[in-house]
Computed example of a mutant assay.
Amino acid sequence: MSRIGKRPVAIPSGVTADINDKTLSVKGPKGTLSMGLSDNVTYTVEDGAISIKPANDSKAAKAFWGMQRTLVANLVEGVTDGFTKTLVIKGVGYRAQAQGKTLKLQLGYSHDVDLPVPEGLEVKTPDQTTVEISGIDKQAVGQFAAEIRRWRKPEPYKGKGIAYRGEFIFRKEGKKK
């Protein structure tokens, strides 16, 4: 029994949800998102909420139930508030700069790393060591943040690298004499 799946997803005012041809479309003030629906779960839009229930008593249907409810909740939250991830760059000479639809990173390599910003995302650099990624699709925001972080993961000895804001980096003691 899924405790997450039992709760219906509330639809705030100004947001509409429609189910057509195995697709759920959610439209709100920030844009429109859609998601393919699973056969293992039934979806109903009624009384200002989206309810998700397993289609049968199979193990697969029960496994999908809570996950699908969370994906629907992410669609609703994305079109109302949006999602933001903040990366912090630590290291001497490491810096980032947003230039239109390109993010330029200087991470100690012999060349600059130029990353094209995916469609639907917005990247801001309030200062040279902070990168803010925002958009309505939670998966796209997280994926682009992970791709940026991949270039210099935080290392445990000096703490240099690209980390999420608020992430704890386990520090190790260096070599002893």
Rank of each mutant, 00 (worst) to 15 (best):
Gly120Pro: 10
Lys124His: 03
Asp112Ile: 11
Gly135Ala: 11
Gly100Val: 08
Leu71Ile: 03
Asp81Asn: 15
Ile148Gly: 03
Ala96Thr: 02
Arg69Leu: 02
Arg69Pro: 01
Leu71Ser: 08
Gln97Met: 13
Gln128Pro: 03
Lys124Trp: 00
Gln139His: 07
Arg152Asn: 06
Leu87Ser: 03
Gly82Asp: 05
Thr84His: 03
Tyr94Met: 13
Pro118Ile: 08
Gly108Asp: 10
Ala98Arg: 12
Val113Trp: 09
Ala145Asp: 00
Val113Met: 13
Ile89Met: 08
Leu107Ala: 08
Arg95Met: 09
Ala163His: 15
Leu107Glu: 05
Glu155Met: 09
Pro118Trp: 07
Leu115Met: 14
Ala98Lys: 14
Glu147Gln: 15
Val123Arg: 00
Gln128Asn: 08
Ala145Thr: 00
Gln99Glu: 12
Thr125Val: 05
Thr70Pro: 01
Glu122Ile: 10
Gly93Gln: 06
Lys104Met: 10
Val72His: 04
Ala145Arg: 00
Leu71Gln: 11
Lys101Thr: 15
Gly142Tyr: 01
Phe83Met: 01
Gln68Cys: 08
Pro116Trp: 14
Gly91Val: 06
Trp151Ala: 05
Glu119Trp: 15
Val117Phe: 14
Glu122Trp: 09
Leu115His: 11
Gly78Ala: 07
Ala145Pro: 00
Gly100Gln: 10
Lys158Cys: 06
Asp81Pro: 04
Ile162Cys: 04
Trp151Thr: 12
Leu71Cys: 06
Pro118Glu: 12
Lys101Ser: 12
Gly159Ala: 13
Gln128Met: 07
Glu155Tyr: 06
Val141Ala: 02
Thr130Arg: 05
Asp137Gln: 09
Thr84Val: 06
Ser110Asn: 12
Lys138Met: 09
Glu132Pro: 01
Thr125Pro: 03
Phe144Ala: 05
Val141Tyr: 03
Lys90Arg: 12
Gly161Lys: 11
Val76Trp: 00
Ala163Asp: 10
Pro154Arg: 14
Lys90Thr: 08
Gln106Lys: 14
Gln128Ala: 09
Val117Lys: 11
Leu105Glu: 03
Tyr164Phe: 15
Gly166Tyr: 07
Lys90Cys: 01
Tyr164Ile: 06
Gly100Ser: 11
Ala98Ser: 11
Thr86Trp: 00
Ile136Gly: 01
Val72Leu: 07
Gly82Ser: 09
Ala163Arg: 14
Thr70Ser: 06
Thr129Arg: 11
Tyr157Met: 14
Glu119Val: 15
Gly120Arg: 13
Glu147Lys: 13
Gln139Val: 10
Tyr157Glu: 12
Glu155Gly: 13
Pro156Leu: 10
Ala96His: 06
Gln106Ala: 15
Lys124Val: 02
Leu87Gly: 02
Val76Glu: 00
Tyr157Thr: 13
Val88Trp: 00
